[in-house]
């Protein structure tokens, strides 16, 4: 059944309710080690809720989340981060009144390296996304696109094995979009796995090794890019409502 022989993340029968609303209903999916998995669906399909359940921001009502063989249910977000899952946010959540250097220091605070070594790492991280010249500026002084880049650099500092990317291309101009895509592919080369949420189908189709389609909280179909592109159910979910 499973499309991947070596899953790093297994979500099995996950349910999340808000009052009477079922936001995520029996969602089951897998992320293969070193792959990029796309999660698509219209607004309100439950993508962000599912993401938040994996990251520990919401507590799932039912189901199982396993990361590298470790059960994640009941762990707090910082424990999940320590386990090796990083995330970005749909709307960038920069630490606005911290300098860019300090923004990148935050994920590294639990590391044993000395202060100076961490600063060097943070500077290198900023250079990776071309924000090095602004290192002593505050987060609030960045443009929206630059904040997206900063988030990407920040999550890298966690040295995660898996990154949950929530709409990394939303509100980003085409040039920046290319840069972000390149970064993601670079990280994938380095062995990092991704769960990529977006409603921008073009970039999802370009990046993903496997795609899940979420509709009204349920996974309605899955498959490779070519399967999904032509699947009538996807077309219906996006157009028919």
């Amino acid at each position: 059944m499973s499309w991947t022989s070596d899953p790093i993340l297994v979500v099995d029968g996950l349910v999340k309710r808000f009052g009477g609303n079922v936001a995520v209903n029996q969602a089951t999916l897998e992320v293969g080690r070193g792959t990029i998995v796309g999660l698509i669906g219209i607004n309100g399909a439950g993508k962000s809720t599912l993401m938040n359940c994996i990251a520990g921001m919401y507590r799932a009502d039912e189901g199982r989340v396993e990361f590298d063989g470790q059960n994640l249910i009941g762990l707090t977000p910082h424990e999940i981060a320590a386990a090796g899952i990083g995330r970005t946010f749909q709307v960038p959540r920069t630490f606005e009144r911290l300098t860019l250097i300090d923004n990148l220091m935050i994920p590294m605070l639990n590391r044993p390296e000395s202060e100076d070594e961490l600063i060097a790492l943070a500077e290198a991280g900023l250079a990776e996304v071309n924000l090095h010249d602004l290192k002593m500026n505050n987060g609030e002084e960045l443009s929206g696109g630059q904040q997206k880049l900063l988030e990407l650099a920040r999550v890298m500092m966690l040295e995660p094995k898996l990154i949950l990317l929530d709409e990394p291309f939303a509100g980003v101009n085409p040039t920046l979009c290319t840069l972000i895509t390149d970064k993601i592919l670079q990280m994938k080369e380095a062995g990092i796995s991704f769960l990529l949420v977006s409603h921008d189908l073009t970039s999802i189709y370009r990046l993903s090794d496997h795609i899940y389609v979420l509709n009204q909280g349920e996974v309605i179909c899955e498959g490779g890019v070519d399967d999904i592109r032509d699947d009538p159910k996807v077309v219906e979910a996006y157009l028919g409502g």
Partner: peptide, 17 residues
């Protein structure tokens, strides 16, 4: 530094470990 990150955005700080 953790405290300042929490002040700016507790959820994001949490997600950053």
């Amino acid at each position: 530094r953790s405290l300042k990150a929490i002040r700016e955005d507790a959820e994001a700080a949490d997600a950053m470990g």
